[in-house]
Design a protein around this nucleic acid. Sequence first.
DNA 1: GACATCTGTAACCGCCACGATTACATATTC
DNA 2: GAATATGTAATCGTGGCGGTTACAGATGTC
Lengths: 155, 155
Amino acid sequence: MAANCRFAFAVHILSVLALKENEGVTSDLLAGSVNTNPVVIRRIVSALQQAGLVTTAKGARGGVKLALSPENISLGAVHRAMGSPTSFAGHRHEPNQKCPVGRNIVLILNEVFTSAQAALDDALSRRSIADVVATISLESEAPPRAKKMSPRRAA
Amino acid sequence: MAANCRFAFAVHILSVLALKENEGVTSDLLAGSVNTNPVVIRRIVSALQQAGLVTTAKGARGGVKLALSPENISLGAVHRAMGSPTSFAGHRHEPNQKCPVGRNIVLILNEVFTSAQAALDDALSRRSIADVVATISLESEAPPRAKKMSPRRAA
DNA sequence: GACATCTGTAACCGCCACGATTACATATTC
DNA sequence: GAATATGTAATCGTGGCGGTTACAGATGTC
């Protein structure tokens, strides 16, 4: 898969929803915060909904809500909902089967990719939307005093 | 950054070099094994050389050699040599600064990206080219009987 | 029931990064 | 000097992504 900002947008969206819990938030409003087109938001929300992280309601007074409490939404789950894009890509053409390396490298790389991806997922899963929102709240109250997030939290 | 096969190609190249240690291997031969164009190989080799993982020699009887022993080349180092491409991308346009989330999300995401990337690098660094080559040798000798390497994976 | 509101998608565009390729300069061996 | 190889610039085709328009479908309000 390729690099994209879907994960960044998804975390952004979920953070807004966490701050407006129990209100239906429209894709127009979310698009205004993320600064993009509402359709882009809806595409991401659609994926989040299929993953069971949000619920949507059509029609007047509809919109998007969190399906779980913020502390129960890990960033790993968000990443998975976005299809777990990886920075890895395998060989485009089949390698030379006459070469011992060519015969075996694809399977070996697959295993490497899988375990690396699992490590990345683990790291993301140590944080939740609640952690993100907590950092936002802190930095919003105090004068510009950049602080780091607390790295260890459960998911 | 985007997803690409440079890492896959690099591991492939280094594995071939490990099996032909102390011989100068040409980009033509490597291209034959990877099944791509020699120039693609040279671009990757150039990056590997800048990272100090291989040496190259111009002219007749020249070619590419490993600069370190295979067990001293971790896959993390290879990934870094390729520029550590990430699957993450941040917001393309600045988010709405009037929104608390918009004001803070970029910094927070940067921190998340950095730590996730570190976890990925750690996972890759637990393996070396020697590990890869060992797997290749095993699978080449015996009939299709995939095994070996830390985690389990079948074929 | 008519209307306004809001999600859900399909369709299309422009952009950009990547792999593949051609071409040529440069360096080394024999 | 001929043959061999790397080093690199330039160009092309492809694919994926964000952005946008357009419209169908669902839902609450009056």
